[in-house]
Each structure stands twice: as structure tokens, then as C-alpha cells.
Computed example of a mutant assay.
Amino acid sequence: MAEEPTTKGEKEEETKVAPTPIFGQGSTFAGTGFSGFSMNSGGFASSGTSEASGGTAAAANPEEECQAEFKPVVQLEKAEVTTGEESEEVKLEYKAKLYRYDFEKQEWKERGVGPCRILEDKKTKKTRVLMRRDKLHKICANFLIMPGTALQNHQGNDKTWVWSTPDFSEEEMKTELFTIRFGTVEKANEFKEAFEAGMKANEELGILDESKEAESKEEGEEKKKEDGVDELAKGLADVKVEGEEKKEEEESKE
């Protein structure tokens, strides 16, 4: 049987019935304003671009690190920072939490959390405890280990120690009651051993005698100041009395 000729309208209808896939490989964006672009593996490419140029673009690695160099706007110079610990040897260092007792409010207050070090000066051989707060590095404990200092557990906790000592962390000598807590019992025991070893070394160096001499000297200076103030006050009082006597004599002559 001879095939019936198809009309032009029927051909257009057949074309509309089976359109090409919209996002399939090789699909085009006809009639949407993107007819100049076609889909290929890995992205969009201009339909008018030759295969040679397309190969060059495909060869570029999108994950390759940028090699561009940018110079800083402001140049900062390196500054040397001294902590005062350069001439000291670290005998022990453990992270701990330190508390001080507030006698006015009668309660423990947290002083800081950070590395607690027992340091020995390489020249003088004096041993001290130095503790700084984490991140801020602010000193929260700084004192020589005084002979005769007694370490005791706080309420039976084997991870803690309580003791009293003259402290210089706030740039002023002040007697504090401290308690320190470590993460493990082993660390607490090692701290006690290093603390007592430093206490013995300082006793042999005569730290306690030096401290007493400094205290007596300070007391002597304070006494001199008080005596000087008393003498000055007495002198001013005498001047005042002499002036009043002259005034009385002049009044009596009149």
C-alpha cells in the first residue's frame, strides 16, 4: 500500500509531540534567550566556540589554589616580650584552678585557671610559685616558697592543697590564704613534692632571715616617718603658741 503524503501542519505537530529533553546531555535552551548556549559535560559552553578553545577551558582546574600574592597594607615589626622567667628553670608545671579566701565575706573566691609553675632561678637558686590565667596570661599567684609553709588538703579532697603565704601577684605584698585544685591526685602529690623541695632549698639559702630583715627594715622606716611627723607637728604647735603670745603682748600694750 502506498504511503499517504503528510501535510506541513502534521509535520509540525509531530515535532511538538516529542521535544528534546530540557536538561539532558546535548539539550538546548531554544526560545528562552539562551539559544547561544548548549549543555556539555561539566557546565555551559558557547555553541559557537570551537573545540580547541573549549578544550583549553576544560583543562583549567577549578580546585587549583590561587597563586596570587597580596602585600599587607601595614607592616608590623616583631617585638620581643620578656616575662621575667627567662633566667628560671621550670621544676613543675600543671594546669590548675586557684582560689583565695575572702576574710571579709568569709568565702572562697576563684582567683584564676591556668598553668601553675614552680620555678628555680638559675643564678640565685631561689624557688618561687608563679601562676598565670589562661589566654590573658595575667599573674594570679607569685610568691617565694617560704620555709615552714604547711600544705593541707581542703575538706579531705586529695586533689587540693591549702596554705597561707605572702603573695606579690598584685604588685603589693599581701598575705593570702590559697587553695589550689589539680586534675588528678598524682599531679597534686607531685606539686607537694616539688613545693617542699623548693621550701627546703630556700631555707638553706636563708630566705626566711632575709624576709625578717626586710620586715624589720620596713618597720624601722615606718617608725622614722612617724617620728618625723610627730616632730613636725610639735614644731608647728610651738610656732602657733609663740605667735599667740606676741599678739597677746601687743594687745596688752594698747
Rank of each mutant, 00 (worst) to 15 (best):
S27Y: 05
S169L: 08
F44Y: 11
M146A: 14
T20Q: 12
T179E: 06
E193H: 07
S35F: 03
T82Q: 13
E110A: 14
K200T: 13
P21R: 09
G42R: 01
T179I: 01
E242Y: 00
E85W: 02
G54R: 15
I118A: 01
R133S: 04
S35L: 06
Y99E: 01
T15K: 12
E64P: 11
D209H: 12
M173S: 13
E249T: 11
D167M: 00
A214W: 00
A57Y: 06
E231K: 03
A45F: 02
K97Q: 11
H154T: 11
F37H: 02
K138G: 06
A141V: 15
G84A: 07
M173K: 13
G156Q: 05
P62I: 12
G156E: 05
P72R: 07
T149A: 14
F195Y: 04
F34D: 10
K109R: 09
T28M: 03
S53A: 05
S87E: 15
E250Q: 03
K240A: 15
A18Q: 10
T20W: 01
E69D: 04
G54N: 04
A201E: 09
G24V: 05
A59T: 11
G243W: 08
S164M: 11
K246T: 09
C66S: 13
E218T: 13
G31T: 03
K125S: 14
R132S: 03
E245M: 04
Y101N: 05
K174T: 10
T15N: 03
A96V: 02
L119E: 09
G31E: 09
P19H: 09
W108R: 00
I207L: 15
V73A: 10
D238S: 13
I145Y: 01
G220T: 07
E120G: 01
T7L: 01
F23Q: 06
V241K: 14
E10I: 09
Q75I: 05
K159Q: 15
K95M: 14
V74C: 00
E3T: 11
V74Q: 03
S47M: 06
L119W: 02
E213N: 14
A68K: 02
F29P: 00
A52R: 13
A141M: 15
R117S: 07
E254R: 00
V113D: 04
A188T: 02
T56K: 13
R181L: 06
T149Y: 02
E254M: 08
F168H: 01
L177T: 02
Q155W: 01
E248T: 05
D238E: 15
A52D: 02
K125D: 07
G112F: 04
L177V: 06
G183L: 15
D102P: 02
T175V: 14
R117A: 00
E251S: 11
E251G: 07
S46F: 05
P19I: 02
S41F: 05
A237V: 04
W163G: 08
F143A: 13
V17E: 08
Q106S: 15
D102S: 14
E248D: 07
R100A: 07
G183I: 11
K95W: 15
